Simulated assay, not measured.
Amino acid sequence: MASPLTALGASAPILAAPMAGGPSTPALVTAAARANGLGFLAGGYKTADVLAGQIATVRSDGVGFGVNLFAPNPVPVDPDAFRRYARTIAPEAQAYDIDPLAAEPVEDDDHWSDKIDLLLSDPVPVVSFTFAIPETAVIAALRAAGTLVIQTVTSPAEARSAVEAGADMLAVQASAAGGHSGTVTPQHIPASIPLTDLLGQVSQAVSLPLVAAGGLATPAAVTGAVRAGAAAVMVGTVLLRADEAGTSRPYRAALADPERRETVVTRAFTGRPARALRNHFTDRYTDLAPAGYPALHHLTSPIRKAAAAADDSERINLWAGTGHRNATAEPAAQILRRLSSQL
């Protein structure tokens, strides 16, 4: 199926995924566009003002781009479970003179309304959503402003709901994807379904054009997804070591470490299922972490920031998909062109 993204200048059907927390930079987004693809700014964990500044930077480069937002889908944490987990991870925090026992659960919506207001007052070419499907009125308003709306889905049922809400395209995310699962039911870890199978299931359920995401890190994998019916593909993990990515030094080092071969799906860092490279923190706390997003994200954030500053890769969230061994240190354009070379 033809992609509406072509009209936005993306002649190559390859998108640079939004990676919140630092890796997705304006420079990475611009590099993706100049490789004839399309890049996404990650709006997650940013205020509207910070996001507006990044939008202005990319816009000044004169390229097409998208913005991704976390749609609110809170999983309120049980207060007793929160306190137990704070006590459990206290030894990790004490290494950095942080006291998690003083923390109270924070249940915010990541500045949702402010960012929607920004994107309606200063429209961008594409907006994608993950974690939840926004209200129909929000999607309709964005479309009326001239924005293409892409909704992340992880199942045929979610795809049907996204169609009913008015989305233009669907990003079909398989469990092989690095970082947070976009599932709208984060209390449950999504089934491990190969991406090509999931594309087939979703294409039977709905007729919208699909963007394939999850574990795509080689030209063969990209070609396979397109042959399975995807109008475009979205890659993230394979760009984490790109020159333009904002990936931290210990994160880059972990991705390049040949001893790190395994990824796991864990709630240990944020209370929401996410795929990461195994490290000390995932090994010790994956089975102990309660469901609870965003409260656990805020609880562990000071530890992760301190660990990153100390080059400690054992206490940070090393988000990575199953194709992480293919991440290379080179310009993003070279990576993207190589991935699309067999299309």
Rank of each mutant, 00 (worst) to 15 (best):
D108Q: 04
A245W: 08
A137I: 07
I89L: 15
A289C: 07
G271Y: 08
R59G: 10
A93T: 09
H188R: 02
P302Y: 07
S313C: 04
A52L: 09
P190E: 03
P302S: 10
A145R: 05
T130W: 05
L255N: 13
D243Q: 06
I133Y: 06
L339Q: 13
S161G: 02
A191C: 01
L318N: 13
L255T: 14
R284L: 05
G43C: 05
H324D: 11
G37F: 03
D283M: 01
T247G: 11
D283G: 06
D168Y: 01
A231P: 07
A20H: 05
I116F: 08
Y251H: 15
L69E: 04
A177G: 09
P258N: 11
V235M: 05
G182R: 00
L119H: 07
F281R: 03
I150M: 11
A35K: 02
E135F: 10
G229N: 13
A310T: 13
A225N: 08
R338A: 08
A17Y: 01
A213H: 02
P156C: 10
L296E: 11
E92D: 15
Q204D: 10
S203Y: 00
D110V: 06
W319C: 12
T196N: 12
D283H: 05
A165F: 08
A217I: 04
A102N: 12
R34E: 11
V67P: 03
R315F: 06
P76K: 01
I14F: 03
R337E: 14
R275F: 05
G62R: 03
G323H: 10
L118Y: 02
F82L: 13
E262Y: 08
V206K: 00
V126H: 07
I55H: 08
H324G: 10
D283V: 03
V184G: 01
Q151I: 15
V58L: 14
A42C: 06
P74M: 01
Q173W: 09
R284P: 01
A162H: 00
A90C: 12
Y45F: 13
R272N: 05
A145W: 02
S313W: 06
A145L: 00
A35D: 06
V149C: 12
A17K: 09
R252G: 11
G64F: 04
A171H: 02
H298L: 08
K46P: 06
Q54F: 13
A141S: 14
E330R: 15
P13Y: 08
S181W: 01
I193F: 02
F65P: 01
L296R: 10
P258M: 11
D109W: 05
V211G: 00
